[in-house]
Nucleic acid binder design. Structure first.
Length: 420
RNA sequence: GGCAGAUUGCCCGAGCGGCCAAUGGGAACGGACUGUAAAUCCGUCGGUGUAUGCCUUCGAAGGUUCGAAUCCUUCAUCUGCCA
């Protein structure tokens, strides 16, 4: 298997390597032959999100460069929970974790190639953890972990005041053991993950060194944040889910389209497979003519296509064009408008339902009080016209494209209502 | 096992018997400006069609009181000290 010797340079250029073990040793390993590597995903929710996508796409980059992926779903680690600053997690039931394992697995598979010389392998750490005895675990794994070093980790330090259970404190042993297990079973010598995983990554590499006198590598991808340093995905619906049931392809596409100028280049490098030349061109165009948002459009189209496919991307684009285009909804043909609204989200309602109730029913606002407040603030629209009358009851004269009402809250939150 | 302290709205954090739906900050949301950006400024930020109203909220359940987030009891969780 020949490998692409420029891989590491490309990863570095894309900003995908926030930390790594000995960089030169890593470079040597990645240029000498196909490296078996792994990246893990814990089933902590019914769907993966934007943060996980960074790992998935990075795995794909490595595979395309000739390396061999092992994608791990954390059936075991998901039962325990990685410690986080916000406090102790609530344990999920075995049934819940099992269900999420299945979903997460299905979300990873489309991005990797399971055929060929460097075909990917799916593993579940539940397989080698479930039957492990406590005594064996403590003797074989625990012995290699100095508690003083574990206490010095940032996450643990931050939790010492508020409290941390032994369960979460031990998480690093499980993840480290995974690396050791994959090293023994498959010869896996590289693990990567998000930068918040750095301690777990090096923990595994060190365990391999201590237990097997083996040489293993690790690197961490950066945390993707907004330019003010806060996390992405905290707007409106919460996280940026990959599951189309949890976040529509339209909403997903809209998210990328609305990314701030200052972040377009970084996101293009991390989330797309455009070449360096293509990305630099897009950055130049965005800098010169920011109002055209060429970078955002390319980003939104590329990522949505990766995650949801070409057809969904076209639907999302068409919907956006219809809703944001000229603003003249009456000028659209019925099929176009109906299709656009279905992307944005629609409900059915009976004739004579008040505008306030419609806002609530579409979910654009969370209560009638919120709806009235929004109208008072001038943030409520019907068919792209601002509504000022709190008591408005839409009638037949408001219908567009036959039986539709187009509700909007704020600048860009649309919902369709089909009257009938 | 004993003693002490903590638990407030999305988050942080005041309040310590009535003036508390509960100060303040952040987040979020709406408006203005723009490009369906960023920054900035202004406004909103428990529910209820409009009532000096009513309902739900200050870890949970009871209780004291004309009246409790504020006092008492029990329970849960967390923290510290002592065994």
């Amino acid at each position: 298997m020949t490998v692409d010797p420029t891989l590491l340079d490309d990863l570095e250029w894309r900003g995908l390597i926030a930390h790594s073990t000995d960089r030169e040793a890593l470079r040597d390993a990645l240029t000498q032959g196909s490296v078996r590597f792994y990246v893990g995903f814990d089933p902590t929710a019914p769907s993966l999100h934007m943060g996980n996508l960074v790992q998935i796409l990075t795995a794909r980059r490595l595979q395309q460069a000739g390396h061999t992926p092992f994608a791990l779903v954390g059936g075991a680690t998901g039962m325990i929970g990685d410690p986080r600053d916000s406090g102790e997690r609530t344990l999920n039931s075995l049934d819940t974790v099992k269900e999420w394992v299945g979903r997460v697995r299905g979300q990873i598979e489309p991005y990797l190639d399971f055929e060929g010389a460097n075909g990917a392998t799916m593993v579940n750490n539940y397989d080698w953890t479930a039957s492990l005895s406590t005594i064996d675990f403590l003797r074989d794994v625990g012995k290699h972990f100095p508690v003083n070093r574990m206490l010095a980790r940032d996450v643990v330090k931050s939790r010492l005041e508020a409290g941390i259970s032994y369960t979460e404190f031990s998480y690093i042993l499980l993840q480290s053991m995974d690396f050791l297990e994959l090293y023994r079973q498959y010869g896996v010598t590289l693990q990567f993950g998000g930068s918040d995983q750095w301690g777990n990554l090096t923990g595994g590499a060190e365990l391999i060194r201590r237990a097997e006198a083996g040489k293993a590598h690790a690197f961490a991808t950066p945390l993707i944040t907004k330019s003010d340093g806060t996390k992405y995905g905290k707007t409106e619906g919460g996280a940026l889910w990959l599951d189309p049931e949890m976040m529509s392809p339209y909403a997903f596409h809209q998210f990328w389209l609305n990314v701030e100028d200052a972040k377009v280049g970084e996101l293009l490098r991390v989330f797309t497979f455009f070449s360096r030349a293509e990305i630099e061109e897009l950055e130049a165009v965005t800098a010169a003519e920011p109002f055209r948002r060429a970078g955002q459009k390319a980003l939104a189209d590329a990522v949505t296509t990766l995650v949801h496919g070409e057809a969904e991307t076209e639907h999302a684009k068409a919907a956006a064009a219809a809703l944001f285009g000229t603003g003249d909804l009456a000028g659209l043909n019925a099929a176009t408008l109906a299709a656009a609204l279905r992307e944005a989200g629609t409900i059915q309602a009976a004739p004579g339902t008040s505008y306030v109730d419609l806002l609530v029913e579409t979910g654009l606002v969370k209560s009638k009080g919120d709806a009235r407040r929004t109208i008072a603030e001038g943030g409520a629209y019907l068919n792209n016209e601002r509504i000022t009358d709190v008591d408005l009851v839409p009638d037949a004269s408001h219908l567009v494209a036959g039986s539709w009402l187009v509700l909007r809250r704020g600048k860009r939150n649309f919902a369709g209502v089909e009257i009938g």
